Amino acid sequence: MSRLNDNPGNRPARQADSDSTDFTFAPATREKAKARLAIMGVSGSGKTWTGLRLTNGLSRRFAVIDTERGAASKYAGINGVTFDTLQLHNYHPQNLISALAAAANAGYEAVLVDSLTHFWSGTEGTLAQVDRAAKSFGGNTFGGWKEGTPLQNAMIDALLSYPGHLVATMRSHTEWSLQTNAKGKKEPVRLGLRPEQRRGVEYEFDVVAQMDTDNTFSVIKSRCPDLHALVLERPDGADIAKTMLAWLDDGATGIDPATYVDRATADDVTFEELGALRQEVDSRGLQSTPFLDPANGTATTLGEYIRARGLALKNATEGSQP
């Protein structure tokens, strides 16, 4: 006998809130997509320059969200790489969401975040938010993570939902290992084994590469077949971008998230239309797309904007009824 429906204590079974979710399956189709790539490595491994060349290869017009005290700008103009930059000194997760929303509003086709590590362990980053929240719970770390986890998740969702190509660098935790060199002698080698970010964050990207102090670029995860297990010494990021674009552009034309933004912000949109739009946006995983609220210029996400505008229209309609 199946026990799937057993309910100890005869308590009412709790039902999932699925009223607004469409569970209809449809044939899978391959659509053109945007790059989601991460480069991790120890200091001096070449992450910033490789990231700049790669992002420039994805789009000639791109922006850099710089947390490395202007490190990226030191490469401006080299090999024709030009870009706009925004330097941040406070790394609250919401600030990255706001920066991405501003970049989307400005129409940048690609963004490089150099580096994502600061939004984890830097000034006012996720760990700082957790520590602050823990103090309000009497030093209870679990209580701190109750506040910090939603901030971190919202930031990663906005990052991966950017309506253009997205490249992020991350510092690696540094460890030393004794290895045999070319002369047969043991020497200490600095290794970066995992990124300084939330554990497992690298798996959120389509392509993840590790760089070492010899500037060797090793792909450790790739959904792009031509980049699988690729190892390059002193890589040319532009060539890597060319390979990625060939893979990303191999598919049917997808829907530009800007189309949904236009529909959501239309002056004559109705409550019913917003409801249908929200279902469509959710089904395509675009609810976390960052953009600036046209009414006040503050950073928001597509899903949150649709929800708030729908609620405002509903309240206005109910308030006008006798």
Rank of each mutant, 00 (worst) to 15 (best):
G143N: 15
Q152C: 08
L54W: 00
Q15G: 01
G139C: 05
P163C: 01
T180P: 10
L96R: 02
L116Y: 01
D249A: 10
A104F: 06
T82H: 11
L52I: 06
V281A: 04
G77H: 07
Y91Q: 04
D131G: 13
P8N: 06
V81W: 05
F83C: 04
L286V: 09
A252F: 03
A308Q: 14
P188E: 10
I65L: 12
A104S: 15
S283D: 14
L159V: 11
K34D: 02
T85K: 04
S98T: 11
S288V: 09
A229S: 14
Q210A: 07
L178N: 14
V81I: 15
A276D: 14
L100P: 11
G41Y: 02
Y305T: 00
F142I: 05
A71V: 03
A76R: 14
D250Q: 08
Q279H: 10
G164V: 09
K186R: 11
R194E: 12
S172N: 06
W176H: 14
S115Q: 01
E124C: 10
N296P: 08
E124H: 13
L54I: 02
S121A: 04
T55C: 04
P12S: 07
P12W: 04
V130M: 13
A104C: 11
G297T: 11
F137G: 09
K47N: 04
R284N: 09
P257E: 08
G51M: 06
A38K: 00
E147K: 10
E233G: 12
S177R: 14
N140H: 13
E272V: 09
K242N: 10
P150I: 02
V269L: 05
A102M: 11
E304D: 13
K47M: 08
F142L: 09
N79S: 14
R69N: 07
S161V: 01
T50G: 08
A104N: 12
L52F: 08
T174Y: 09
K47F: 06
L96M: 05
R60F: 06
Q94V: 05
D22W: 00
Q94Y: 07
T85M: 03
G275A: 01
E147D: 09
L4G: 15
R198L: 03
F291H: 02
A168K: 00
A101L: 07
D250A: 14
N215S: 12
M211C: 07
G275M: 05
L245W: 07
L4K: 14
G9H: 14
L88P: 01
Q179A: 15
D17K: 08
L227H: 06
Y203A: 09
S218C: 10
A168H: 00
F23Y: 12
T216Q: 05
T253E: 09
A252N: 12
S320I: 10
F271C: 08
L277Y: 00
A71L: 12
S59I: 10
E31T: 13
A71Y: 00
